[in-house]
């Protein structure tokens, strides 16, 4: 290797010397070691590279990018395979043909609806039953970790968690994503101090038959619950009747 070849190789060397263990770079360094002109040239090159690198690394990402990545507020999120046009077309064809076939099949005509809608009452009853049965919570101790988990695994673009719940001094207990009547439900559990562990269920409210005008508080299956709609999602917050009062839940859902 001559000095010119060594210069070519050394322009791949990072200024912090992290590449000096590399065989080619080590050999090139040895070649120019006794060549003052080449050493001086290398210093000049490294100095310029350091300035260019520092300038490029100073470019800041958009202020909201980190949060968007963590909460999954992605605009062009790739569609799952079942939402792609070919599958949608097939599903649409099935949606039309299956009811027709059922109606015209001898002896099987039915008036049952093909697609199930949901009611607030059913949602509240069955989510609190799930709590009594013991949900399968993924343990996560901070709201940021919960958001990251939802961003990675939930189809929901945004889960509007009230500020006071986000700032629960005891943090979060964990979360779960499960399917209920063909819809994805998110469950986030918070450690709410004196009010005990409280559980926030959310589901897309677009298929809801009985949209509540305002918040509805109602004890159900041993749980004090508060239900409301926010940003297109039906929200149900539940705390044990032994620990959480209706007022506790009211405070926890505030956005202060």
């Amino acid at each position: 290797m001559n000095a010119e070849e060594a210069k070519l190789i050394l322009q791949c060397r990072r200024a912090n010397g992290r590449d000096d263990h590399d065989a080619a770079i080590g050999e090139a360094l040895a070649v120019i070691r006794d060549d003052p002109a080449a050493t001086e040239h290398l210093r000049g090159e490294e100095s310029l590279d350091a300035v260019i690198g520092e300038r490029l690394r100073s470019v800041e990402p958009p202020a909201d990018l980190l949060q968007k990545i963590l909460v999954g507020g992605k605009v062009t999120r790739p569609k799952p395979w079942w939402r792609r046009p070919a599958w949608l077309a097939a599903a649409a064809a099935l949606a039309v043909s299956v009811p027709l076939a059922v109606n015209y099949w001898p002896g099987t005509a039915t008036n049952r609806p093909v697609f199930a809608s949901i009611t607030l009452s059913d949602f509240r009853t069955e989510t609190t039953q799930k709590l009594n049965a013991g949900p399968k919570i993924r343990p996560l101790s901070t709201i940021d970790d919960v958001k990251a988990h939802l961003a990675a695994h939930s189809l929901a673009k945004y889960v509007p968690v009230p500020d006071n719940l986000c700032h629960c001094p005891g943090g979060t207990v964990g979360c779960e994503i499960f399917e209920w009547r063909g819809k994805e439900v998110t469950l986030i559990c918070f450690n709410a101090g004196k009010a005990g562990t409280v559980h926030l269920f959310t589901v897309d409210a677009s298929a809801l038959e009985d949209r509540p005008g305002g918040a509805i508080c109602q004890p159900t299956n041993g749980w004090q619950t508060r239900a409301w709609i926010e940003d297109g999602r039906l929200m149900v917050l539940a705390g044990s009747e032994k620990e959480a009062t209706r007022e506790d839940l009211e405070v926890l859902v505030r956005n202060d």
Binding site: R57, E60, P62, L65, I69, T76
Partner: peptide, 27 residues
Amino acid sequence: YRGLYQFALSLARSEADAADLTQETFL
């Protein structure tokens, strides 16, 4: 995310596309 965004910006030459590429990478 910062380094990835800077890499994406140099490739895509648009802030919006760079942010989108960065988000999609993490997805």
